[in-house]
Design a protein around this nucleic acid. Sequence first.
DNA 1: GCAAATTAATGATTTATTCAAG
DNA 2: CTTGAATAAATCATTAATTTGC
Lengths: 217, 217
Amino acid sequence: MPQTPSTRWCPTPEQVMILEEMYRSGVRTPNAAQIQQITAHLSFYGKIEGKNVFYWFQNHKARERQKLRRRLCRHHQLLLLNNHHHQQAAGAASEDVSPPPPSPTTPTAAPLTPHGLLLPHPHTTTTPCFIPQGYNFHEVTVPGLDLVGKLDSVETLDEDPTAGMAAEEWMATMDFSASLPPCCRPLKTLDLFPTKSTGLKEDCSSSKSSSCSTSTN
Amino acid sequence: MPQTPSTRWCPTPEQVMILEEMYRSGVRTPNAAQIQQITAHLSFYGKIEGKNVFYWFQNHKARERQKLRRRLCRHHQLLLLNNHHHQQAAGAASEDVSPPPPSPTTPTAAPLTPHGLLLPHPHTTTTPCFIPQGYNFHEVTVPGLDLVGKLDSVETLDEDPTAGMAAEEWMATMDFSASLPPCCRPLKTLDLFPTKSTGLKEDCSSSKSSSCSTSTN
DNA sequence: GCAAATTAATGATTTATTCAAG
DNA sequence: CTTGAATAAATCATTAATTTGC
């Protein structure tokens, strides 16, 4: 018998297909209920857990972003190079970089508080490379698709407790604290247990400069 | 009646005290079972959920690290300054930087827990600034404490499926996919739903240089 | 004293980074 | 090398402290 329980989830092609379709349709950070539904749906095609769905979207989102970033970076560098060498090099970009919409009238006003005060900590981070602030590569919601269905159809609660939920919060929907035996309420003494040792990282003058640097590993 | 449901958890002093005590005792990233127990314990003192415990440890860990980092930074800068000016300035440090023990013969062996368990992946990251690799500021386990108790006492399973679990994984312990009504297996069509728009950030050549830079606002 | 205005803490979310299985 | 899994860092957002003018 296979004694290797295969520690990690191995998605079937159908599962991947469906997940990708959902992603393409705009799903990025499904909430608890949505993850439940997706999981239930995909479990028809193979073994799957909620956390698999959760991680999949997390990873896919991150890696799409990273991919795009890399592409834009390459594009940028090419442009610089071309500008430098004074060559026109029409369609030289090796990959079709989806044209970043300049977002003509992005309100992105300065961090002015409703009180009319300058914010002490301008969260509008330093304008990256040349990526427009509000540019989201895949937020477009293709309305004609019905692979991705109404995920919040069950239980049309009016109060909808898990309304704005997203990401990790889904883990909180089931308050399992009630699933404990009633005997462990005042649990007077607890023993200590080991923890993972993670040393300090980061520097005083952190200069990450990581992304897009054609890592030659 | 208070119509403000108070979206976020407001820990009671007792809860904070206990959590801090646990942290001091070495708890850093409790796993699902541990979180369950802690939650059950703390729920005696006030409303609390598992995710609150999870977040608390996450935040506390991060912020302790950050605090220490800052202190070390200041210390470092002071040292540099003093070395530069060739002044001895004995105890000039404005804050008591917990002296990073040079640990002459720190066996800093792999993260071996008191239980004799090897931790999954030590994440021995790139050596930062000047912080010794295996230096964990609060990993010391004070053995005489019984505020923190044996958290993994319930259910001494032999197979122990959630053995090396930690952090977010606790959310996966309850495979709620089974808690769904059996009717929703092949869920043929799902409707799309809106997602939060989160734009790109980060740069190609990111140079944040944020921390420790005595911001003169 | 107090209440609006700010600031500091900190709970909650999202993003980036890293590890390692396949 | 791809990608599932896990963790850390960054960020957002709300509450508590604290300040400030009256």
